[in-house]
């Protein structure tokens, strides 16, 4: 079974017994699905952590108490921007960045 790289089999004989993937999320960087990107205004941020809590893709990472977007996996759903009580997150078109 391959580790940490794309899973490809030449024959059914090489398959594990059931659909099992190792390191699949390391391979599939779902950030590529994004058309909108959250931009965090750290001036407005109160470090409440609501964006971190609500992100369905665990793509808000807290670095030294401040939220940071993990662009490898953020799909740009905008939930963080919608939930932020201080309007500290805005969604910006990828194309304009």
């Amino acid at each position: 079974m391959p580790d940490d790289h794309e899973i490809n089999y030449n024959s059914y004989k090489e398959l594990p017994p059931s659909p099992i993937a190792t390191g699949s999320s390391l391979v599939f960087k779902t950030g590529g699905w994004r058309t909108m990107r959250p931009i965090i205004d750290l001036e407005k941020c109160k470090k409440c952590g609501i964006c971190w809590k609500y992100c369905p893709d665990v793509s808000i990472i807290i670095v030294e108490d401040l939220p940071k977007v993990d662009l490898d996996y953020c799909k740009g759903c905008g939930i963080c921007a919608n939930e932020c009580p201080f309007d500290a997150i805005v969604m910006v078109e990828e194309e304009s960045i």
């Binding site: 398959l15 059931s18 190792t22």
Partner: peptide
């Protein structure tokens, strides 16, 4: 870490499983 029971497209391995 491994993920179990993930998606398999028609051209992938469902048939073989």
């Amino acid at each position: 870490p491994m993920s179990f029971g993930s998606l398999s497209m028609p051209h992938q391995y469902y048939y073989e499983f």
